[in-house]
Design a protein around this nucleic acid. Structure first.
Length: 804
RNA sequence: GCUGGUGUGGCGAAAUAGGCAGACGCUAUGGACUUAAAAUCCAUUGGUGGCAACACCGUACCGGUUCGAGUCCGGUCACCAGUACCA
């Protein structure tokens, strides 16, 4: 027999699959469809990382299995190619980002092809392709049209030394990711998307999808819905109301002071009345300069300044209470002002202790001498006039009603979720298709003029003012207003990397359509995605953003379903052999190419699936790969043991059927490691017997195919196991009656300890098992003359004899 | 701090609904083959005691429920991930 030569057979089968268009999804709506999705990769200059194939292999297994089960499968691939690293590389090496992108994409494509994934390569999308981003821009215009895109002055992270606006994820430990320089907050006019308007829909949508619980929880936390009330406090000196949001209106009688955020606009209006305005101003300047990071980092010690000369009136008892400013109150949540109830809020308690402010208990049950009492289940209202004696829940309802009647407040729901900052002052992103006209204001680029393409430029460095490099290209910036034909300028901000990835899964269903984002019929057939696997690092933002866009497109009638992904699962990270996260600086990066060169793609895929539980973080092991290679090699050698028998052999009937069952079920629940363990057991047992039938091998090769498709196809062909290619075969089925043995070994316990093992006919019922066991000589010896008190029989498992 | 998760041999890990803990793989040791090595194959491999059959101990720790607990309940500790003054 020939030696197992992965390099040769893998290349051979990859060519055959490609030539036969074996894995192209057909727009054949008569067949049931299955849409499997992985997060499309960012084609970085470092090449493919071993983390990518973990997710890819897992979904490749599902896809290959589904095809054998008769589904029309869509398993696409593409490139999330806009973004910073490419742009930075381009700046440094003076190459056009498009050139860098193309190079990286080619490298990635080649690497992925070597691994034999059954992607439909005919549907490849690339977010940087104008034919693709035409529709990204189109969606933006739709959002704009529906009032969901607007411009606002918002603080951004700004790196002082790079003179660059940074995204949150580019700020690491309060410093610029690239240069380690100081990051400050700077207010800038930015395009925003009103995702907050979709908070409730995004929350509700989670009810109808099958996501792992962890992911749902993270989405809910991020949206952060909380129910409470808005309450108006009078500020007599300027005759204004200061509104606060609170989730604890029941504690209103315990509000002993107020705190407003340093950025709160009411400060300026109170200016003349504040006798220590210098101090206030100084505090304010300090706070505004700090980055978000510093503000939350330095949260150990509360700081603040009292507004001398200003008081507020607590609406429930008309008491005058002091007003402070402090940076622990955020302008971006609620109303930017709070009523402080130190007795029942930890932060207020800490602040009150530090500045010696009064603490009034209004919920009895705790010990407010030592700490704030925040329990809402057990306490009883005190010191609260008409609320006294009520539970917290009752008091909440009563006070909210009271406030509403008096016109002093109302019920209110708040979300942590904030609108999405959609501008980047960068070159390598989709231009935002808006024109600024002095006469007409913001004017959307007419749909028939899309896409607005990026101009070719020499210098990608941002301008000194932190504007996009596009501002320096007058021939691109200067245009005419589509409305009045007067001179106008193009928007120079580009979209963030999240844009293209927020809808790519839609495009896969109709990737070459130049007349629409997607054909309605194709959308109806292919959407939603049936199964989406990806990393935990994308479970909040990417998932939320894409759900938002998808839901919006549904609302305007472009897409037939509310939620984009029916099912979402997550894979664990792969660590270096040292148990550390893989990184260049640690020098522990495993390159998939090297593994494939040495052992072949099948071994690589098998190991990635065998190394541990799929959803858990696991370190790479060189020896583990070798073990998988040994298994693959033993599979190859099965060919020498094959008999002439066409059917499943009687010798291996039980083994074959239990293996079909175990492997089929484990693939579905992503327990790839135990599915593979079962196949190893199969090979071990066959080797022990020294032979297997063609029928046995036929089944085995089909089960192995999703994980190690090259060797499986090769054996199928070489052994001439059937008509056509393996990928065209149907998935094997097991017969339940062959998954039970005639006799089963059960454990015999005396007082819970295993003392004997006996083979018992599996058809016996409890009574028969009991009799069978008690009749056994060894068991009788073990019992001796002790009294039998109780016998527990678990068929197929054990018999426990309780004696005493 | 909060939320979620994890804790089982020398290592990666298994163990549907409470029912034989450690499947499968790696490592290690011994052996076969070889002039030798690699590769391959065979055997052993949770700990302690014993020549042995066997016995006792063992799933982070303490306690509970049960004929029976890795699994359920209460408490404690450690680690990982996400998030962070969200009123």
């Amino acid at each position: 027999m020939t030696k197992y030569d992965p390099a040769k057979i893998e290349f051979k089968w990859q060519e055959i699959w490609e030539k036969n268009k074996a894995f192209e999804a057909k727009d054949d709506t008569t067949k049931p469809k299955f849409y499997a999705l992985i997060e499309f990769p960012y084609p970085s200059g470092d090449g493919l990382h071993v983390g990518h194939p973990r997710s890819n292999t897992a979904m490749d297994i599902i896809s290959r299995k589904r095809r054998m089960e008769g589904y029309n499968v869509l398993f696409p691939i593409g490139w999330d190619a806009f973004g910073l690293p490419t742009e930075n590389f381009a700046i440094k090496n003076k190459v056009h980002p498009a050139v860098v992108t193309e190079r990286n994409v080619n490298r990635f494509r080649e690497q992925l092809k070597r691994l034999g994934f059954s992607f439909d390569w005919s549907r490849e999308v690339n977010t940087t392709d104008p034919a693709y981003y035409k529709w990204t821009q189109w969606i933006f215009l739709k959002l704009y049209e529906h009032g969901l895109a607007y411009k606002a002055e918002v603080p951004i992270n700004f790196c002082v030394s790079c003179k660059v606006g940074l995204a949150n994820e580019e700020v690491v430990g309060g410093k610029c990711e690239r240069c380690d320089g100081e990051v400050v907050r700077r207010v800038k006019s930015q395009w925003m998307l009103k995702i907050t308007e979709y908070a409730e829909k995004l929350l509700e949508g989670l009810e109808e999808v099958d996501y792992i619980e962890k992911v749902k929880t993270q989405q809910r936390n991020w949206i952060g819905k909380s129910k409470g009330a808005e309450v108006d406090f009078a500020i007599p000196c300027i005759n204004e109301k200061l509104t606060v949001f609170t989730t604890r209106p029941d504690t209103l009688f315990g509000a002993t002071y107020m705190v407003i955020s340093p950025e709160h606009p009411i400060l300026d209006r109170m200016k003349e009345h504040i006798t220590n305005f210098d101090e206030v101003e100084a505090y304010r300047a300090e706070a505004i300069k700090k980055s978000d990071f510093e503000r939350s980092e330095l949260n150990k010690e509360k700081t603040g300044v009292s507004l001398k000369g200003v008081v507020a009136i607590n609406p429930v008892n008309n008491t005058e209470i002091p007003v402070w400013i402090s940076d622990y109150v955020l302008m971006s949540y609620g109303t930017g002002a709070i009523m402080a109830v130190p007795a029942h809020d930890e932060r207020d308690y800490e602040f009150a202790k530090k500045f010696d402010l009064p603490i009034i208990e209004v919920v009895a049950g705790g010990d407010i001498e030592n700490e704030a009492f925040t329990d809402i289940e057990t306490g009883t209202m005190v010191n609260s006039d008409f609320l006294n004696g009520m539970s917290v829940a009752e008091a909440k309802e009563a006070i909210t009603k009271w406030l509403a009647e008096k016109g002093l407040g109302k019920e209110k729901i708040n979300y942590k979720l904030r609108d999405w900052v959609f501008s980047r002052q960068r070159y390598w992103g989709e231009p935002i298709p808006i024109i600024h006209c002095e006469k007409c204001g913001y004017v959307p680029v007419p749909y028939d003029q899309l896409p607005v393409t990026l101009p070719d430029i020499e210098n990608y460095q941002q301008s000194d003012s932190g504007e996009s490099p596009l501002v320096n290209i007058p021939e691109w910036v200067n245009t005419t207003c589509p409305k009045c034909n007067g001179p106008a300028k193009r928007e120079t901000d580009t979209m963030p990397q999240w844009a293209g990835s927020s809808w790519y899964f839609i495009r896969y269903a109709d990737p070459h359509n130049d007349d629409a984002m997607i054909d309605k019929k194709k959308a109806a057939y292919w959407l939603p995605v049936d199964w989406y696997n990806g990393g935990m690092e994308h479970t909040t933002l990417h998932l939320l953003y894409s759900r938002f866009w998808h839901r919006f497109l549904y609302d305007i009638g472009e897409i037939p379903c509310k939620e984009p992904y029916k099912k979402r699962t997550s894979h664990g990270m792969i660590l270096g052999t040292d148990g550390q996260k893989m990184s260049k600086s640690r020098g522990n990066v495993i390159n998939p190419d090297d593994v494939v060169d040495e052992f072949g793609a099948d071994t690589f895929r098998l190991y990635e699936m065998f190394m541990g539980a799929f959803d858990q973080t696991t370190p790479w092991s060189e020896q583990g790969v070798r073990g998988c290679y040994r298994f693959i090699d033993r599979v190859w050698k099965l060919q020498e043991l094959v008999t002439d028998e066409e059917e499943v052999s009687e010798d291996h009937r039980y083994l074959v059927h239990t293996t079909i069952k175990k492997v089929s079920e484990d693939y579905e629940s992503m327990k790839y490691n135990t599915a593979i363990a079962q196949m190893m057991t199969f090979v071990n047992e066959v080797n022990e017997k020294g032979k297997l039938s063609r029928g046995d091998l036929r089944v085995f090769v089909k089960l192995l195919n999703p994980v190690a498709p090259h060797i499986a196809e090769e054996i199928w062909e070489k052994m001439n196991l059937g008509e056509g290619y393996l990928y065209e075969q149907s998935w094997p089925e097991y017969d339940a009656k062959y998954t039970v043995k005639d006799e089963i070994e059960i454990a015999v316990q005396i007082n819970g300890k295993v003392r004997e093992r006996l083979d018992v006919p599996s058809k016996y019922d409890k009574k028969q098992i009991e009799e069978f066991v008690l009749a056994n000589e060894k068991v009788q010896d073990l019992i001796g003359d002790k009294q039998i008190r109780k016998i527990i029989v678990v068929p197929g498992r054990l018999v426990n004899i309780v004696v005493g």
